[in-house]
Every structure is written in structure tokens, then in C-alpha cells.
């Protein structure tokens, strides 16, 4: 076992982990952050998304030993007071009822939040393209797009060629 320390949702945490243990396993099985979910295990579906040093990454493709000393944020991350973006994203998803079974949704909302925190100017088309890697089997994509448009409007940053 290896001792690993990192910041999780703003708090310093320490875990003893097996070398081959993924961050997904540590977060779910030990840390209890159940918003981070297993689905494909190969980084294609997005349900295990976390923000690593503020950027969306797949926690199934990271060994926990690799995040020693780094900053990890999950969908639960309770930084609502400090992050208006977080709050706006959550409201938009609730208002758009952008979920069915919702297994994938926290990760999608977290991805949008991470992308907007990185680049507040992102438009709806850019966010949609970036969300290509977040799968939803229920097909809640129209509602997710509705949420995105509630957040950033429908006019593209480059003059846009929106339909509808």
C-alpha cells in the first residue's frame, strides 16, 4: 500500500491505496464520493469525470498514486458559495430537467462547469462539441443542450450559425 495525499473538494485527504487502484475506485469505495460513477472503465463515457487541477479528466484512467499532491473536485464539490458558475450550471440542469436516469448527469454538469471556469466565453456549439465524450443512454441530450443554452445563450461567440 502507498500513502497518497491530495485535495478533495477543498479538503486535504489521505488514503493508503494499492498501486493499481484507480482514482475512481478510491473515490467511490473509500472516499464515498458516489457522484463519480463507473460505466465503461475505458475513459469513453464520462460518468467518472472529476476535475483534476481544474480540468475534466476520467478518474478510471488515473491511478490514485498519480494524483498525490494534486487537486481533485467531484460533482458533490460544495463550492457553491465561492463559485457562481457551479450554482448557475446546477440551476440550468434542474430548470431544463436535464436528466432521466441521471447516472451520467453529475459528470456532464461538472464537465460544463470545468469548461466554463476555464473559458467563460465558450459558446453553446463549443460546449456541445466538448460534451461529445459524455454519453447518456437515456438520450437526454436535447435537455442537456437546453441547459447549456440557458447558461450561455444561443448566440455563438464568432457570430454563430445557430439553427432554430
Amino acid at each position: 500500500m502507498t500513502s497518497v495525499e491530495f485535495r478533495l473538494n477543498g479538503a486535504q485527504v489521505a488514503f493508503d491505496v494499492a498501486g493499481r487502484e484507480t482514482l475512481l475506485e478510491t473515490l467511490r469505495d473509500t472516499a464515498g464520493t458516489t457522484s463519480v460513477r463507473y460505466c465503461c472503465g475505458i475513459g469513453v463515457c464520462g460518468t467518472c469525470t472529476v476535475l483534476l487541477d481544474a480540468l475534466p479528466v476520467s478518474s478510471c484512467l488515473l491511478l490514485t498514486v498519480m494524483v498525490d499532491g494534486r487537486d481533485v473536485v467531484t460533482a458533490e464539490g460544495a463550492d457553491v458559495r465561492h463559485s457562481p458558475v457551479t450554482r448557475r450550471v446546477r440551476d440550468a440542469f434542474v430548470d431544463a430537467q436535464a436528466y432521466q436516469c441521471s447516472y451520467c448527469i453529475p459528470a456532464i454538469a461538472l464537465t460544463v462547469r470545468g469548461l466554463l471556469q476555464q473559458d467563460p466565453e465558450m459558446d453553446a456549439d463549443e460546449l456541445k462539441t466538448a460534451l461529445g465524450g459524455n454519453l447518456c443512454r437515456c438520450g437526454s441530450y436535447p435537455q442537456v443542450l437546453d441547459a447549456v443554452r440557458r447558461l450561455v445563450g444561443t448566440s455563438g461567440r464568432r457570430g454563430g450559425e445557430q439553427d432554430g
Binding site: 475513459g43 469513453v44 469525470t49 480540468l55 465524450g133
Partner: peptide, 9 residues
């Protein structure tokens, strides 16, 4: 390549 998460890592 891959998706936004893969490209970030």
C-alpha cells in the same frame, strides 16, 4: 483525439 478528458490528460 479521444474526448475532452483524454486531451486534458
Amino acid at each position: 483525439v479521444g474526448n475532452v478528458r483524454v486531451r486534458n490528460a
